[in-house]
Computed example of a mutant assay.
Amino acid sequence: MAMSMRRALLPLYRMRFSNLKNAESSLEVRYPLPFVVPVRTKKRYFIPPAVGIKGKAAASADQEAKARAAGVVLRQEYMERAINIACTAGVFDPYIPPEGDARLSSLSKEGLRQRTEQIKQGAASQLAIRKIKEHDAEFTTKAFPVKAQEIFVDAHNALTQFNKEKLHSLVTERCYPEMVRGNRYKTLRWHFVESLEPPKVVHARCPDMVSKGNIYGQVTVRMHSRQTLAVYDRFGRLMMGSEEEPRDVLEYLVLERHLVNPYSMWRLHGKIVPAWAPVKEPIVKTVMIPGPELKPGEEFEGLNYEVPKPKAVQWHK
């Protein structure tokens, strides 16, 4: 019975398979072929150092020819360097502070000579101030030094509190890494006590960058004040300065603004340190002093071991 049923259904199955094959051939169904995408590998070609520049050029040309033959398109490599047009990369024509500033009297012979040199150098500053006033109508040489001192105080308060958002709004992108460098795992205590002399504008320039007409205003403000600074390491030990002993500080601050941008603000851009400035006091760093090796059962107090005191070393950031 089963064989008879199989013999009856086999012709039907063959007929159905042939119909499907004919329909497939009539529709011309084509199966997609595998698509091969060439992938750039990280294979490096070693060039011996004795080959020279010509050998390197020939090796790179051979590498490009092999890549083109294989159907791989090599992307051209450009030596690009990111720039920031919100501020300049440095101080343009920096102000040279006269030697003995804040110590010599204006009535002395040396003081009169310095005064005459400042008057001669002030001609270029007057032209820059006029150009600044064309873009910033509120700029005046009398009110700006007070504003610059407020920016200086707010920026240092934000630095001691590690307020990055506020610090970015008060200093430029060039000044920010210089202020925060080396302050990790440290505690800063800074306080502005008083101003010994009223701040004043001593220098002004208007440089261009990238294209003509892209003007930046740089104003140097002389500030003579009394401040306190104390730096503690991560263990809470005093590294330099004192919170109770104020010191007289003479600084030349450079503030900058992108004058073409109507939404820009005056920000702290840098500080001019004269060559005749006194050397900073050495920073005392916490180091581990190796002691004697103790045997089992011995105590350090019973050995009467004198710990040597480390010598002060001048550290530069």
Score class of each variant (00 low, 15 high):
Ala2Glu: 06
Ala8Pro: 02
Ser18Tyr: 09
Asn22His: 11
Ser25Trp: 09
Ser26Gln: 05
Leu27His: 06
Tyr31Arg: 08
Leu33His: 14
Phe35Trp: 13
Val37Pro: 12
Pro38Gln: 10
Thr41Gln: 08
Val51Arg: 00
Gly55Gln: 02
Lys56His: 04
Asp62Trp: 09
Gln63Pro: 01
Gln63Lys: 02
Ala65Met: 07
Lys66Val: 11
Ala67Thr: 10
Arg75Ser: 14
Gln76Asn: 11
Tyr78Cys: 14
Met79Pro: 01
Ala82Met: 09
Ala82Glu: 04
Ile85Cys: 02
Thr88Tyr: 02
Gly90Lys: 06
Tyr95Asp: 04
Arg103Ile: 10
Ser105His: 11
Ser106Ala: 13
Ser106Ile: 15
Lys109Phe: 15
Glu110Ser: 14
Leu112Gly: 12
Gln114Leu: 14
Gln118Val: 13
Lys120Phe: 08
Gln121Ala: 14
Lys131Met: 01
Glu134Gln: 10
Asp136Pro: 02
Glu138Phe: 08
Thr141Ala: 00
Lys147Gly: 00
Ala148Arg: 00
Val153His: 00
His156Asp: 00
Ala158His: 06
Glu165Ser: 14
Tyr176Cys: 03
Met179Lys: 12
Val180Gln: 05
Arg181His: 12
Arg181Val: 15
Tyr185Trp: 04
Trp190Lys: 00
Val193Trp: 09
Glu194Trp: 00
Leu196Val: 10
Pro199Gln: 02
Ser211Cys: 14
Lys212Thr: 13
Gly213Tyr: 12
Ile215Cys: 01
Ile215Gln: 00
Thr220Gly: 05
Val221Ser: 03
Arg222Ile: 10
Ser225Trp: 03
Leu229Trp: 14
Ala230Glu: 10
Ala230Thr: 12
Tyr232Glu: 05
Asp233Glu: 05
Phe235Val: 11
Leu238Thr: 08
Met240Trp: 07
Met240Lys: 09
Ser242Arg: 10
Glu244His: 07
Pro246Asp: 02
Asp248His: 06
Asp248Gly: 07
Leu250His: 06
His258Trp: 13
Tyr263Arg: 11
Ser264Ile: 04
Met265Ser: 09
Trp266Ile: 01
Gly270Thr: 01
Val273Glu: 11
Trp276Thr: 13
Trp276Phe: 13
Ala277Phe: 04
Lys280His: 10
Glu281Ser: 10
Val284Gly: 06
Val287Tyr: 13
Ile289Trp: 12
Gly291Ile: 04
Glu293Lys: 11
Phe300Gly: 13
Gly302His: 08
Leu303Ile: 11
Leu303Asp: 07
Asn304Arg: 06
Asn304Gly: 09
Val307Met: 05
Ala312Arg: 06
Ala312Met: 07
Gln314Pro: 06
Gln314Ile: 08
Trp315Gly: 07
Lys317Glu: 10
Lys317Tyr: 07
